[in-house]
Design a binder for these strands. Structure first.
Length: 588
DNA sequence: GTAGGGTTAG
């Protein structure tokens, strides 16, 4: 950049070329603009295609799309390379629509998109979640014969993944014979991002089996999948595998491990790894803060947040989801309100539905139901099912029938087929002794043919995931498992336990009801865990719905009688049972 | 005479 400071107005075109190349390498847009001005004054710019191209490239890399596009428009003869770098700029930074405008212009000019154009266009589709556009581009890919290209393929896989079309992703993946590691990674990410962690793990094994060397992205994706599965042993294996492959000092892999250990209930190990990070980036802070929040360690989460600010790391909207849900778990109303205000005022973050959900949950937690409702009415964003669900849940805990009815009314509009909401209101009615309303609600459910979704819980034992549905007798160890449950029942009866059958929704006789509660999937998974692990071993069970109230009581007792730490991760939160107490403080 | 696909936190 020394040359820039020289007074001499005349530089050779080679020198300009060299300087621009250096600007591109450093992403230095300001010196580039100065060079642009000189080129303009000297009248060189429009005669030297090479220099103009370099400038468009620089602007495009540096998010200066307006500059890039203006210059692009003035270049008389444009080649595909020039179109591609401008499309790339829009694909990376938006507005994505501009990428498609350029694409159509390109076609109008009689040019054919190539294996560079397609990945950029597909990236823009991913950004817009525009499946129809994506499919149209896919057709064009097939027509122009680029479908076997790994770059195009990976972009197609990602586009379908971001639009939620997992099967289409897989078709693209299966269709390409000469795969490379990124193509595998794209497919792994598709499964991980779309809630198919088991498929992700399976494919990961296949990839290794086919002698592909995992990369940083492979491990990050696989670790996040095992975090979503709550598969601690698989996660530990991946941890060991990272050692073997030399990724153990890699901060991105390590952040994945922090998330994985936190989600599987090992917050302490997560913290140790977090402290080992050489560079603590925003994602790492967020993983640790949300990890603490999930497990109800409100003060640890907030202390870490304060430390993050001392490190001058700017929090983002995800950090505040963690901070606010930490306040919620700790019933810290004043702090929660303070952070919510600070997020808006000090950090200029527009509260999202998630932030509002945290606040409504928090107000509800503290029995400020009317304020919670008022907040919903004042929200600038449209309240979704999470928001009304939080209100409904708070109404159940504090026995507010009227607001509960209102919340359900809104929920029915948003999720007409979700039985869970009806069940919560029916529980509110049952608790309040409103039997007539309860009967009416049941009638409505029957009329609308709303059925409770099948509850499923799973537990990982010796690296294998064992899944149980409600009343399941299909497991090979089913007999032993029910025997264990029966034995537990005797112990619990001695401890004064009386089954609470109110969560059982169907009209059935009492002893039948008992059996149904007894056969709840979380109990089956825990019973299986008890008989297939050594005494004292921790258990982690994951459930697709909320833990039922009776099971919550029972698991507390089991943790005391069997001297076991049991973690249940239900659809909303974690419950840590130890010595007869649950970390949620019976609020969930 | 150049560029590109996959990566974690909610």
């Amino acid at each position: 950049m020394l040359l820039l400071r020289l007074k001499s107005p005349i530089l050779s075109q080679n020198s300009y070329s060299f300087l621009l190349k250096s600007c591109i390498a450093r992403k230095a847009v300001e010196p580039g603009k100065q060079l642009h001005a000189r080129l303009f004054i000297n009248g060189i710019i429009f005669h030297d295609f090479n220099l103009a191209t370099k400038l468009v490239n620089l602007y495009s890399i540096c998010h200066s799309l307006t500059y890039a596009h203006n210059l692009f428009d003035k270049i008389p003869k444009r080649n595909l390379f020039l179109w591609n770098i401008l499309i790339r700029g829009y694909a990376w930074n938006g507005p994505y629509e501009s990428a498609f405008q350029l694409y159509h212009q390109l076609l109008d000019h009689g040019l054919d998109p190539d294996n560079f154009t397609f990945p950029f266009l597909l990236k823009a589709c991913s950004g817009l979640s525009a499946i129809n556009l994506g499919k149209a581009i896919h057709n064009r890919v097939i027509k122009t014969g680029w479908e076997m290209d790994v770059f195009v393929g990976a972009a197609l896989i990602d586009m379908y993944a971001k639009c939620g079309y997992v099967n289409e992703s897989r078709l693209v993946f299966d269709n390409i014979m000469n795969r490379d590691v990124v193509l595998w990674n794209s497919m792994l990410a598709t499964y991980a991002q779309n809630g198919h962690p088991e498929e992700c793990m399976k494919l990961c094994c296949e990839m290794v089996f086919q002698n592909f060397m995992p990369t940083e992205a492979t491990l990050v994706t696989a670790i996040s999948a095992s975090a979503d599965l709550g598969a601690i042993n698989q996660g530990r294996e991946l941890h060991g595998y990272s050692w073997k492959l030399g990724f153990v000092f890699n901060d991105k892999v390590k952040t994945g491990l922090v998330d994985m250990y936190a989600k599987s209930g090992n917050v302490k190990i997560a913290r140790v790894l977090f402290e080992e990070l050489r560079e603590k980036r925003l994602v790492s802070w967020n993983a640790m803060i949300t990890g603490y929040a999930m497990h109800g360690h409100a003060h640890e989460a907030l202390n870490l947040f304060k430390r993050m600010l001392e490190y001058s790391t700017q929090p983002d909207h995800i950090t505040f989801v963690g901070v606010l849900s930490a306040c919620n778990r700790g019933a810290l109303l004043d702090e929660g309100q303070m952070y919510f205000d600070s997020m808006i005022k000090d950090y200029c973050i527009e509260p999202s539905v998630q932030h509002f959900t945290c606040m409504i949950d928090l107000l509800g937690h503290c029995n400020r139901l009317n304020e919670a409702y008022r907040l919903i009415t004042e929200m600038k964003v449209t309240p979704d099912s999470g928001v009304w669900g939080a209100l409904l849940n708070s109404c159940k805990i504090h026995g507010n029938v009227e607001l509960g009815e209102l919340a359900l009314e809104r929920l029915i509009k948003l999720q007409p087929d979700d039985a869970g909401n009806y069940v919560i209101l029916s529980n509110i009615y049952a608790q309040a002794g409103k039997w007539e309303r309860l009967q009416n609600l049941r009638k409505v459910m029957i009329e609308r043919n709303i059925k409770k979704s099948i509850a499923c819980s799973w537990i990982e034992v010796k690296n294998k995931i064992h899944a149980f549905v409600c009343g399941d007798t299909s497991h090979p160890m089913s007999d032993e498992l029910y025997e264990e449950l029966e034995k537990m029942g005797e112990f619990m009866a001695e401890a004064g336990y009386i089954p609470n059958t109110s969560p059982v929704f169907f009209d059935v006789e009492d002893d039948e009801k008992m059996e149904m509660v007894n056969g709840h999937s979380e109990r089956l998974a825990i019973a299986f865990g008890l008989i297939s692990t050594p005494p004292g071993a921790k258990l982690l069970v994951t459930k697709n719905l909320r833990v039922c109230e009776d099971c919550h009581v029972v698991i507390k007792l089991i943790s005391k009688i069997k001297k076991r730490e049991i973690t249940v991760r239900d659809v909303n939160r974690y419950h840590h049972f130890k010595d007869g107490i649950c970390s949620c403080g019976d609020y969930w």
